[in-house]
Amino acid sequence: MGQPVGDEPRDDAELVEALRGGDERAFADLVDELGPALRRLALAHVPSEAVADEVVQDTWLGVIRGIDGFEGRSALRTWIFRILLNNARTRGKRERRTLPFSFFRRDDPEGRGGPTVDADRFQGRRGDQPGAWARPPVEWSSPEERLAGDAARRVMLEAIAELPARQREVLTLRDIQGYSAAEARNALELTETNQRVLLHRARAKVRAALERHFDDEGGAGR
């Protein structure tokens, strides 16, 4: 909880002073701490590793150039994530226009509203037990093995690409990168509740995609 990884996080004021003073060691620590998460968040918006690399590099350039003007109104790390997200969202929009297929096509960035599981999975008002499963999920057989496979991996990546942008950001930091709720909330400037709602919806959609995949594959036994 609290600070993202890194053994002894300095407080912001000290770190900002070090960066302004050209302390390369302090900068390297920051790059090591945030680099993987920044790269992964960039990949949540742009379609290739090469573009993600550029977005991350532009972010560090923004930090290096902007640190003198950083006023500390937000936490240093929140500021860095904000620079990255602005870059990544802008780049993502531009790249999307040039893509032949529907990569990241949602317009509604939060995608709130509506149930997370298809309503037709449950009994309607006239059923014996309204709101109970009509078609319950069936335990996945040998889930560890199948979930680790290439096919499942592809299904997850496709499902993530289909998520509304904010859901994709939260899922990326929380579940792929392993950030705590507090870390993700600070990085993405979300309220605790909003963070959780977005995560909830995103996870449900990835699960549903896996379920469809396993159904098609057959072999979901009990």
């Binding site: 579940d175 699960r207 896996l210």
Partner: peptide, 22 residues
């Protein structure tokens, strides 16, 4: 299945080569 999904997502964490970025 939600728990299994979360665990599987963590398995996507290999974000490629970070050394060049660094």
């Amino acid at each position: 299945q939600i728990r299994q999904t979360v665990a599987a997502l963590r398995g996507l964490a290999d974000s490629g080569d970070f050394t060049r970025d660094r």
